[in-house]
């Protein structure tokens, strides 16, 4: 039996992940720079990854950690495509301010 299972309750990991996820949500809601918004999304994905890994260890089931790998794959693909789109937006608007992107409103 692992030392961490004996001494750290699994609730602590739930609380830590919830706090990190909420910080990510706060960043997405309040920042205007698109790059920082993408970074906050990465933080939210990492909070979920941490919780999956913790449950995987506590249940000694490897499937949770496999799921973390697939989330990492999606995060890497998302970062690559998102930053590509961002460079394209910057070329057209000379800014990464997301509040300028309201062309669909009217």
């Amino acid at each position: 039996m692992l030392e961490v299972i004996r001494s750290v309750p699994v609730e602590y990991y739930v609380y830590l992940s919830s706090v990190l996820f909420s910080i990510g949500v706060f960043g997405v809601l309040t920042r205007r720079n698109a790059i920082v918004v993408l970074m906050c999304i990465e933080l939210m994905l990492n909070a979920v990854n941490l919780l999956l890994a913790a449950f995987s260890t506590y249940l000694s089931d490897a499937q949770g950690q496999i799921m973390v790998f697939f989330i990492m794959v999606v995060a890497a693909a998302e970062a690559a495509v998102g930053l590509g789109i961002l460079v394209m937006i910057y070329r057209n608007t000379k800014s990464t301010d997301i509040s300028l992107l309201d062309k669909l409103r009217n």
Binding site: M1, L2, I5, V10, T57, Y58, S60, A62
Partner: peptide, 14 residues
């Protein structure tokens, strides 16, 4: 959440 590690849990899982 009711997860308690059992004594026979496998530490080699990761």
């Amino acid at each position: 959440i009711q997860i308690a590690g059992t004594e026979q849990s496998n530490p080699q899982v990761g």
